[in-house]
């Protein structure tokens, strides 16, 4: 059914890659472009249920929308919401906090996830058990996980009991209520919660590597470290790219743990962009300003999206 559409335009990729067979050029270009039809249902579904809300968000960000005006026509105010959000002074520190938060969650989430996946890609009962625990954690809602860590990191909590018990510090460490530690603590707990996800996906990718690749390497005398560095890491590269993007995006929009553990405090020390957006839209009921802050985050991620999409294409063009 896609013949008319595709036959007229020979695939660009085909002509660009001489390494590929040219035996059936017509048929191949037909099938290649035709495969885009596979994405059609998703496209239609998202058009209705995701792009409409996204468009509304965009419209809201340039309108004056409060509880009073939400359900009446919105008045266009241009960039007022963006300016308002910026001039209230909370936007810039929130941006800084977001960068720190995203960095920590992404780095620990990815490295920890890959490490856990490699460690647990054996089929021992211990691996299965640990993986089961990690899935259990990932399945628990943030209100449970966050509360647990709030207890564990509290003055009378287990971690401080151990720290003071073995004499590492004479007094309890102010993990969650000192501005120097609070953001770090929440970010690390958030990474802890995201590692199971990355580990599961990495593990699936590692298990997909053909066994003979390893055997060949082993005959060549590669040690485990070389095996990881020269085989596993390159083989999971596409997965790593996707996970990096998903983790960054997750970190960029995550506010559940902040909500449960610090509520942005002490003061505004753990306010990040998504939390700020939540405060603006659902605590102060300034939907317009909340949408503006959310749009800023989306635009930041848009840059990331472009980088990802381009790097994926250039990388795959060589493969």
């Amino acid at each position: 059914m896609s013949a008319d559409l595709t036959a007229a335009r020979p695939s660009r990729r085909l002509s660009a890659s001489p390494g590929h067979t040219r035996r059936f050029p017509r048929r191949r270009s037909l099938s290649r472009r035709g495969k885009l039809l596979f994405a059609l249902p998703a496209g239609v579904f998202l058009l209705i249920f995701s792009f409409f809300p996204l468009a509304q968000l965009g419209r809201m960000s340039v309108s004056d929308v409060s509880a009073r005006t939400l359900n009446s026509p919105w008045e266009f105010v241009g960039a007022d919401n963006f300016v308002g959000s910026a001039t209230q002074g909370s936007l810039v520190p929130a941006f800084g906090n977001t960068v720190v938060f995203v960095l920590i969650v992404t780095v620990i989430g990815l490295i920890g996830g890959l490490a856990a996946a490699i460690l647990l890609s054996t089929s021992t009962w211990l691996s299965a058990f640990v993986l089961g625990l990690m899935v259990f954690i990932w399945a628990l809602p943030p209100v449970v996980n966050g509360s647990v860590w709030k207890f564990l990191l509290g003055d009378a909590g287990l971690i401080n009991s151990i720290i003071t018990g073995i004499g590492l510090s004479p007094t309890a460490v102010p993990f969650l209520y000192d501005e120097r530690f609070a953001l770090l603590s929440v970010a690390i707990v958030n990474s802890w919660a995201v590692v199971p996800f990355n580990a599961l996906v990495f593990r699936a990718a590692i298990l997909g590597i053909p066994g003979e690749t390893f055997e060949a390497a082993r005959i060549d005398g590669a040690n485990r470290w070389q095996e990881i560095w020269h085989m596993i890491v390159p083989a999971v590269r596409p997965t790593t790219l996707v996970l990096a993007v998903l983790t960054i995006v997750y970190a960029f929009r995550s506010f559940d743990f902040i909500f449960v553990m610090t509520y942005g405090g002490p003061g505004v020390a753990t306010n990040t962009l998504p939390f700020l957006s939540y405060l603006q839209a659902f605590v102060r009921f300034d939907f317009g300003m909340g949408a503006a802050t959310a749009v800023i985050s989306v635009l930041l991620v848009l840059v990331l999206a472009v980088i990802y999409a381009r790097s994926v294409r250039s990388e795959e063009a060589h493969s």
Binding site: D178, E179, G265, P266, G267, V268, A269
Partner: peptide, 12 residues
């Protein structure tokens, strides 16, 4: 609330 929190937390 935010200033109250900052005072108790010793930030300000």
């Amino acid at each position: 609330g935010q200033v109250w929190s900052a005072v108790i937390g010793g930030q300000m």
